[in-house]
Design a protein around this nucleic acid. Structure first.
Length: 206
DNA sequence: TTAATGATGGGCT
DNA sequence: GCCCATCATTAAA
């Protein structure tokens, strides 16, 4: 069982889409080759949420978040990293899901080459890393999630256990639990609560 | 024009 | 754990 996610899948509340994207499979067609991975970590952004690019209204960059759902929003940060998002909500409402980590399934060889120096288990466990591994750049901004370049499928597999947390790397909007990830999955990024120091700290006095 | 900022990751310690 | 590379985007000037 494998079905291309319909546009209607994305035309819903962003947090719901972010949660339901866990376990889905993303494919990237790259000059005849296909790279792919299972989505294991996401974050929801949108509307007036101060952490979202949409919070100050539509700008040339963020306009795509206000447009029709089912398209990629790719932007550049920190002078070196691209971030992949899926546009959500019906047209007119701003929303996007940041894809933070994948479990590599297809094209590991090419991913490893692109992520030269990275150990096999750290190919796509971070939003910047996965864009690097998949070869996604600003040129992919606006690409459809229903082919030909990008495609997202439901292959029937459901995540074992889903957990939530505050989003990573933001200074505003830290109170909402809009990060979703598959509990215990080895390819989930090294977010604060996964880091050794935090785990030790969390255990203190407990 | 210019300056501040950032939804990060890698390398070194 | 800390440092820092490196530039698109934005707002202010």
């Amino acid at each position: 069982m494998k079905r291309l996610l319909p546009a209607a899948f994305y035309a819903r509340e962003t947090e719901l889409v972010a949660r339901e994207l866990l376990g889905k499979v993303l494919f990237v067609r790259d000059r005849g080759r296909v790279l792919g991975g299972r989505i294991v970590e996401t974050e929801a952004y949108g509307g007036d949420d101060p952490a979202s690019h949409s919070s100050r209204g539509a700008t040339p960059r963020s306009a795509i978040m206000f447009g029709p759902p089912g398209f990629a929003y790719v932007y550049f940060v920190y002078g070196m990293h691209c971030m992949l998002n899926f546009v959500t909500e019906p047209e007119g409402r701003a929303g996007a899901v940041l894809i933070r980590a994948l479990e590599p399934l297809l094209g590991r060889t090419l991913m490893s080459r692109r992520r030269a120096g990275a150990p096999p288990g750290r190919l796509t466990n971070g939003p910047g890393r996965l864009c690097r591994a998949l070869g996604l750049t600003l040129k992919d901004n606006g690409a459809s999630l229903r082919g030909p370049r990008l495609a997202v499928y439901d292959d029937g597999l459901r995540p074992s256990a889903v957990r939530t947390s505050p989003r990573v790397g933001i200074t505003k909007g830290t109170e909402t639990l809009w990060r979703f990830f598959i509990d215990g999955h080895p390819d989930v990024s090294r977010a604060p609560e996964n880091r050794r120091s935090r785990l030790l700290g969390a255990n203190k006095g407990g």
